[in-house]
Structure formats: structure tokens, C-alpha cells
Design a protein around this nucleic acid. Sequence first.
DNA 1: TTGACTTGGTGTCTGTTTTACACTATCATA
DNA 2: TATGATAGTGTAAAACAGACACCAAGTCAA
Lengths: 229, 229
Amino acid sequence: MTVTYEFPRPNLAVDCVVFGLDEEDLKILLIQRAIPPFEGRWALPGGFVQIDETLEEAALRELREETGMQDLFLEQLYTFGAVGRDPRERVVSVAYYALVNLGDHEIEAATDARNAAWFSVDDLPQLAFDHTEIVQTALKRLKGKVIYEPVGFELLPRKFTLTQLQRMYEKILERPIDKRNFRKKILGMGLLQELDEVQVDVSHRAARLYRFDEKKYRRLRQRGFNFEI
Amino acid sequence: MTVTYEFPRPNLAVDCVVFGLDEEDLKILLIQRAIPPFEGRWALPGGFVQIDETLEEAALRELREETGMQDLFLEQLYTFGAVGRDPRERVVSVAYYALVNLGDHEIEAATDARNAAWFSVDDLPQLAFDHTEIVQTALKRLKGKVIYEPVGFELLPRKFTLTQLQRMYEKILERPIDKRNFRKKILGMGLLQELDEVQVDVSHRAARLYRFDEKKYRRLRQRGFNFEI
DNA sequence: TTGACTTGGTGTCTGTTTTACACTATCATA
DNA sequence: TATGATAGTGTAAAACAGACACCAAGTCAA
């Protein structure tokens, strides 16, 4: 099955920057390419957009096919259209990004991918295509976004401690935050629900657990509340 | 000359939201379509991306061809990829936006456009395709951006009064701003160069003229200075 | 069982920023 | 020379941001 057009068209692709967080680092999900070009090289999960699916559908499909990941919230990042970014032919790629909790998702390599794995953002391998630039753009955007929207909760497990939350902000913003000021501010926003539970299996005083109260968030957001950190 | 591909491909387009400002209103540049679909309907300037040009080059070319506008700074806005957004066939469109001073640019309708004209953003005609959605997205972005970057100067003539500057912020942000606080803040940033000139031909006390000092802006920006309004 | 270690949890003070607010100055024109 | 239009200016109060240090609770090992 082939198609004929009057003028040549760029091929249209999507790429996904999926962020995760563990105790150590902010991480990104990469796949190892099983086919040329850049066979064997690590790359962002992604692929070509089919004629009858939206861009976001394409991104979700490729993520599922290549990494087994499902049900995540994608946000559009930027569209990369440099003429030589793919050595085969003209490819324009719409990049998306997502935040996930590492524990919630089992990854599994599949179609077109030899392997899928998490890499610390400050220790990435050499990437295929212009994917290093895409990752840089995503990091910048995440950093910019986390300041004025409580967006990072998706990186944490549903129940978390204030210290975990603070570490997350410190990792994304790449600067230390004062513990007392942070707690004052974040509790003052009224977005956290204090639970009657504490950490278990820790070899020191157990910290209280909290969870993100999405209802309160939506209420406050509607009123134009300011979530700056 | 035709081309044949193994799989169908979306057609790739660009669209431009060009903002301008006059004494009355924030405006947007529209063209009246000379060809179907939506013949005669007003639409954003834009068109298909050629195989050997970048997205931004395509946007600049279309602007020049359709409106005569040249030499403007485009910033990528968002990529619109809904499946039925163009009635003819699948078209994915990368939207750009720009700010210009109305006085600096003569517009002239050309290729594919019957006419080109400025429309007040709160009195737009019915637009072709999903262009109303694109305009809404651009307005939201402009509003978000103007708060933390001194971006609006491009909307004003090179020499302007503080009142003109304040009116611009009020029009974009859609809220009144206190005159004294505004002046304190904006002068405190050190981005404005006070000129030895005042308005002429006004039937009241003439206001001092200022201009935007791009050098100072770049210096401050490098140091991570905060330009919040 | 006690002491050392680890992380949790808390309040105050100070300087800065933001906001609210009203009158005089200058110029043109009638 | 009076009127009308816009320019230009300062202060006080409140809110916010940032710096800073110690005790509490639990685990573990001697």
C-alpha cells in the first residue's frame, strides 16, 4: 500500500520525555534502538504519527509499544523541525513530556526497542538524533513549571513525607531549600492532606505521611490561586 | 512532479498569530482566504511547510507572501494536531506568534489572500479552521509571558511614554495597574532609558519619552534577574 | 540500658516587597 | 486667566521571604 502526493511532505513523528524520580536522582526513560539509524544507540521513545490518530494518541501508543507504559498524562513540549535532524529524510517531531512515579510502572522493551531503561538526567548516554536537545528543553520546562504549579506530585508515590517532597523540589530546581520555610509554605497552600500514618521500616524516627489533595487543588486553581514555590 | 510514500502522511502547516497594539486595543493580523476551503473567511496567515525549510522559515515565508510582513521575531506557540481540523485532509499545524509595532509595518494582501487586516482581539470575526482556538492559546501564552519577561516593548514604538507602557500591560493582562506602583517597579528594573524628549502635539502636559534599553536587558537576563510585573 | 546516631519536626525575627492611596505640576485651549 | 487633560510624585501598613538552631523520636550497637 502506497500513497502519492503532489509535493514531498516531511514525515511527522512524536517523541516522549518521561521523567521519574527515585531516592537518588531525577531520571528519564530511554529505549535502545533495535533498527537503523542509530541502531543500538539510546533514544527517547517515539515514532511516526499515523494518519488517523492525534499527536497525543501517537505518543501514548509509541510509549506503550516501546516501553509498556500506559495511562500517563502527556503535555506537549515543543516541535523540533530542523532540516537535517534525521539522517534518512526530513522528519519533524512533536515532543511530549510526562511525570510518573517510578514504582507504579513496570517497563518492558518491545517493538523497535532492544531495551528500555531509566537513566539519571545528569548521567545520560549519547543519544540518537537531536534527542539530547529535546531532553534539555524538557528539563528547562520542568524547572520553569514546577515553580508556579504543583506539578511534581506525580513523581512521588501517593503517600509521601514532606522530606521526600522537598527532595523532589531540590532535585528539579537544583538548589537546596530551607526545611522550615519549605514546610511553612507548602502546608500553607492547603494542598496536602495529612494522613494518620507514618513511615514504616525506617531506622530512625518515622515521618508523617501526606498525600496531594487534588480536589482542593482544583478549587484553588479555579480561583486563580498562586502556587509559587 | 509527484512523490510516493509507503504510508499516508499528514500534511504539515504553520500558522502565525501576529499581535499589534494601537491606542485602542490589542490586535491580531488576519487574512481573508482567497481559495477554498473557507474561501472568503478570515484566518491566521500560514500555509504548508516545504520539504527543505525549517518550521520558522516556513512561517516567515508565509507571512511575507500573505501579508508583506518581514523581519519579525517568531516564537513557537503550540502544535495543533486534531484529526478533523482541516476538512480536506489531515493537516497538523505548528503555530507561531509574534509581537510587532503597528506603525512599523505596512501590510499588503498577496498570495492566497484576498485581503489582510488588523482585528481587535476582543472583536474577532468567525475564523477558518480551528484558528479561534489557536488565537486563544496565543493570548493565554502572551498573558503568561508578559508577567515575567519584558516582552511587550516590541508592541510599542521605539520611543514611548510610561503611560503608553502601562496601557499596554493593562490591555494584555486585562486588569488595571496602579500608576505609582507601576512606575516605581518598571523604573526600578533599570531597563528603560530616559530620553531628553517629550511628547509633541498633545493638548495637555507632554510626557517624557523613554526607550527600552536592550543592552541592559541582556546583561540583567544573563545574571538571572527577575522581571516580574 | 544507655549512649550515639539519624532524621523529624518546630518559631521568630528581620529585611524586602507589595499594595493602597491623593495631590500638585504643566501645558494647551477657550 | 480659568478650565480641562494628563504627568508626575511619596509614604505608611501589610504581607511575604529568608535566615537561622534546637529538641524529639526512634534504631542500633556496645
